[in-house]
Amino acid sequence: MGNDDLAINVEGLTKRFNGLLAVSNLALQVRRGEIYGFLGPNGSGKTTTIRMLCGLLTPDGGRGTCLGYDVIRETRQIKRQVGYMTQRFSLYEDLSIRENLDFTARIYGMGNRRQAVDSALERLGLADRRNQLAGTLSGGWKQRLALAACMLHEPRLLLLDEPTAGVDPKARRDFWDEIHRLAGEGITVLVSTHYMDEAERCNRLAYIAYGTLLARGTVAEVVKDSGIVTWMAECADLYALGSQLRGQPGVSQVVPFGNVLHVSGTDAALLERAIAPFRAQAGCRWTPIQPGLEDVFIQMMEKARDNV
C-alpha cells in the first residue's frame, strides 16, 4: 500500500507523563476515506494518541505522517486540514452558538464565512437558537455543536474523541449517517468510542489498552484473531448456572444478555469440557455462537491487565 493511500501512518508513537507510559510504541495506519474506530478502556491512551496526531502533544518517541505531513515537524499544516473534536466540550461557553461557529470560521480564514455558518446552523437544526449561549445547551447538543464546529472548515481528516458520548440514539444515528456520507466524499475519520454498535459501523478499528495496541482490522478479523469461542446458554436458572460456571478452568467470561448467557474462553477444548456437565441439564439449550466485539475486548483487556 503506497504512502499516498494512508491518511494516518505512524509508528513507534510513545508518550510518557511524569515517567508513566500513556502510549507505548503505537503504530496506526488509516487509509484515506476510511472510518477507523479507536477503542479501548478508560485511560488507555486514546485521547493522548489523538492529541499527538494533531500536534497538541509532542510524542516522546516515534514518527510518521498525518495527511502526508510529518507529525512532529509539520503540525501547522496538519492543523489546517484536520478537524479535531475534543472529548471535553472546549468551545466558548460565554459565546453564542453562532458566535462560536463564526469564530472558528474566521480562524480558518473561510471566505464564505456567513454562508458556511448559516448552513452549519441549518444542518444542526439550531438555526432558531443561534443566539443561545453555548454554555446553556444540554450535554448532547453541546456535542452536536462541537461536531459542527470541527467540520466547519471542511477538513480532510476528522479526529473525533468520543463524539457521541451522551447523545441520544436518533442523533447518534444521524451522526453516523453523516460520517458515512463524509467518508463517501473521501474524508477520513478516526473516531474513538466506547459503544460496540458504533465500532461495528467502522470500516476498521484498533483496540488499545494500557497504551498498547492489542488488535486491529475489520470487526470480523478482530473477532477471528482473538481466538475466542463463545457458547450461548438458554436456561431456566441463569443465575445459578452463571455462578457455577465462573472460575471453572477454560471459562474466562460469563455474561448474561437478557434471557441468555454468553460463556466464552480462548481454549475451545477446555471450554467444552467445562460446560459439558451443564449441557446435559434438562431445560437448557446450548449453541455455539459468533463471539461479539464486546466479549473480545473484555477478554483482551483482562489478558492485558494480567500482563502489565
Binding site: 497538541l56 489546517r80 475534543t86 472546549s90 472558528t104 480558518y108
Partner: peptide
C-alpha cells in the same frame, strides 16, 4: 482552565 485552550491550540492560530 475552561478547556478551550485545547480547541484553540488545535487550530492554525
Amino acid at each position: 482552565e475552561r478547556g478551550t485552550m485545547e480547541n484553540l491550540l488545535a487550530t492554525p492560530v
